Computed example of a mutant assay.
Amino acid sequence: MGYVISLGVGFGVGLLYWLLKVQSPAPPLIALAGLLGMVLGEHAIPVVKAQLFTPGATVQSAPPSSDSSAKKPLAPGAAKEGG
């Protein structure tokens, strides 16, 4: 399958060269710009996938404790016991 994709992309780039009337092999600046685009695209795909397909953070709370010795949370501004 990788060969078919590679052939299709190569055909597309060849068509783009023909439309832009760029000789193959391309001049160095155009070739470097194309290589830069390939490298950026290669690195951008995993980043985009990570942003789009990461599961949302879920918050789970523990059930209330039936232990009678559990302390109640302190009121705001109250001092802690035992220091």
Rank of each mutant, 00 (worst) to 15 (best):
K21R: 14
K72Q: 10
I30V: 15
P46N: 09
L7S: 13
E81P: 10
G82A: 11
T54A: 07
P27M: 03
P27V: 09
L7D: 11
F11W: 14
T58M: 10
P27L: 08
G82L: 10
L40A: 13
M38F: 15
Y17I: 04
P76H: 03
L29I: 13
L19A: 06
G10Q: 09
L32R: 11
S6W: 01
F53L: 14
G8R: 15
L29G: 07
S68D: 07
P28R: 02
P63N: 11
G14W: 04
P63A: 12
A44Q: 05
L74Q: 09
E81F: 09
S24H: 00
I45E: 05
S66R: 14
L16V: 01
A79G: 04
A75P: 00
K80M: 04
H43I: 08
L15A: 09
L74F: 08
Q60G: 03
V48E: 06
L36A: 15
A57P: 08
G12P: 07
K49N: 11
T54Y: 04
L40Q: 07
V59H: 02
S61G: 02
G83L: 07
L15Q: 09
L19W: 11
A31T: 05
A26I: 06
A26P: 09
V59S: 08
A79T: 06
I5A: 14
S6L: 11
P55K: 15
K21W: 00
V13P: 05
A31M: 09
V9N: 10
K71I: 02
